[in-house]
Amino acid sequence: MKFGSGCQRRAYAKDTTMFLQTIDAHDRHQVLIDDRNGFYLLFADTHEVGLGRSFTPHWVGEMADRRTLEAAVRWFARRRDRWQAWGALAKAVGHATFDRHMRALIAAEPFETVSGTFVHIAEDPCEILLGKVLDGSNGTRQDVLHQHRFTSAAARQRFCTWFDADRNFEQIGAIVLLGYQTGAVAVATALDDIARDAAAAGVRARRKRHC
């Protein structure tokens, strides 16, 4: 996995699609992975899955390998705001028609694999951009997932100092995963916590030097 080299200044498109603000853990539909015999991705009704018996998913896709499976999971996660409409469509038109619909949609918007995570400094002195570097049939692109505004420019600087000094790539990756699972509100809290903890660490260091 590749990562960006620290906080870098970057402009961004204002109409970028980002994380949902919050994600309902009790969605009526869900995406499941079945890798017991091959690599399968299932889009299914949450209630039927919860019954604990055999069920027929809305859609099943067989992936060539685990890398493609992970790309498919991300593809669905980035379109979570469409799940309810997809579920309703599947029930209305039947499995065969819905399968054709999904395959046409995937052909028009192909899966992309993740090659890295980035943190960029936005033009606003209090903001950063968090996202992924994606490789697909149309080349490599950067996908902004979250635009975060710290409480002050100093707070942003503390975050960037923390990130650049320790190369906390794994923690940033975990924050991105948090965004997919629970939404932008949780991501914002995590980033603010880092800036606050960095400030507290700085105060402790200054006190220690004066002792």
Score class of each variant (00 low, 15 high):
residue 3 F to A: 07
residue 3 F to I: 06
residue 4 G to D: 07
residue 4 G to C: 06
residue 6 G to N: 03
residue 6 G to K: 00
residue 6 G to F: 09
residue 8 Q to G: 04
residue 8 Q to N: 05
residue 8 Q to K: 05
residue 11 A to T: 10
residue 11 A to Y: 09
residue 11 A to R: 03
residue 12 Y to G: 04
residue 16 T to I: 13
residue 16 T to W: 12
residue 16 T to D: 15
residue 18 M to K: 11
residue 20 L to Q: 15
residue 21 Q to R: 03
residue 21 Q to M: 12
residue 22 T to N: 07
residue 26 H to P: 01
residue 29 H to Y: 15
residue 30 Q to Y: 04
residue 32 L to S: 00
residue 33 I to A: 05
residue 34 D to Y: 10
residue 35 D to Y: 03
residue 36 R to S: 14
residue 36 R to A: 12
residue 39 F to D: 01
residue 41 L to K: 01
residue 43 F to D: 10
residue 47 H to L: 14
residue 47 H to K: 13
residue 49 V to Q: 10
residue 49 V to T: 12
residue 49 V to E: 11
residue 50 G to F: 09
residue 50 G to L: 10
residue 54 S to P: 02
residue 57 P to K: 06
residue 57 P to W: 11
residue 58 H to N: 09
residue 61 G to N: 07
residue 62 E to D: 04
residue 65 D to M: 09
residue 68 T to D: 13
residue 71 A to P: 12
residue 75 W to D: 08
residue 77 A to S: 14
residue 77 A to M: 11
residue 80 R to K: 14
residue 82 R to I: 03
residue 83 W to N: 02
residue 88 A to I: 07
residue 89 L to P: 04
residue 92 A to L: 14
residue 93 V to D: 13
residue 93 V to M: 15
residue 94 G to Q: 11
residue 95 H to K: 15
residue 97 T to S: 15
residue 98 F to W: 13
residue 103 R to V: 13
residue 103 R to L: 15
residue 104 A to T: 11
residue 104 A to R: 10
residue 108 A to T: 03
residue 109 E to T: 04
residue 110 P to Q: 06
residue 114 V to Q: 12
residue 115 S to F: 05
residue 116 G to P: 11
residue 116 G to E: 13
residue 117 T to K: 01
residue 118 F to D: 00
residue 119 V to P: 02
residue 119 V to Q: 03
residue 119 V to C: 09
residue 124 D to M: 09
residue 124 D to E: 14
residue 125 P to C: 07
residue 126 C to Y: 06
residue 127 E to V: 02
residue 127 E to N: 06
residue 128 I to L: 14
residue 129 L to N: 12
residue 130 L to R: 01
residue 132 K to V: 11
residue 136 G to I: 03
residue 137 S to R: 12
residue 139 G to K: 08
residue 139 G to R: 05
residue 142 Q to M: 13
residue 143 D to N: 12
residue 144 V to G: 02
residue 145 L to W: 07
residue 145 L to G: 00
residue 146 H to A: 08
residue 146 H to C: 14
residue 152 S to G: 02
residue 152 S to W: 05
residue 154 A to W: 02
residue 156 R to F: 03
residue 157 Q to S: 12
residue 158 R to M: 07
residue 159 F to W: 05
residue 160 C to F: 07
residue 160 C to G: 02
residue 160 C to A: 10
residue 162 W to T: 00
residue 162 W to N: 01
residue 165 A to C: 03
residue 166 D to A: 07
residue 168 N to D: 04
residue 169 F to E: 03
residue 172 I to P: 03
residue 174 A to Y: 01
residue 176 V to Q: 01
residue 178 L to Y: 00
residue 181 Q to C: 10
residue 183 G to N: 11
residue 184 A to C: 02
residue 185 V to I: 12
residue 185 V to N: 02
residue 188 A to F: 02
residue 191 L to V: 08
residue 193 D to G: 04
residue 194 I to L: 14
residue 195 A to L: 05
residue 200 A to P: 02
residue 200 A to E: 14
residue 201 A to M: 08
residue 202 G to E: 14
residue 203 V to Q: 06
residue 203 V to P: 00
residue 203 V to I: 13
residue 205 A to E: 15
residue 205 A to M: 13
residue 207 R to F: 02
residue 210 H to Q: 13
residue 211 C to L: 09
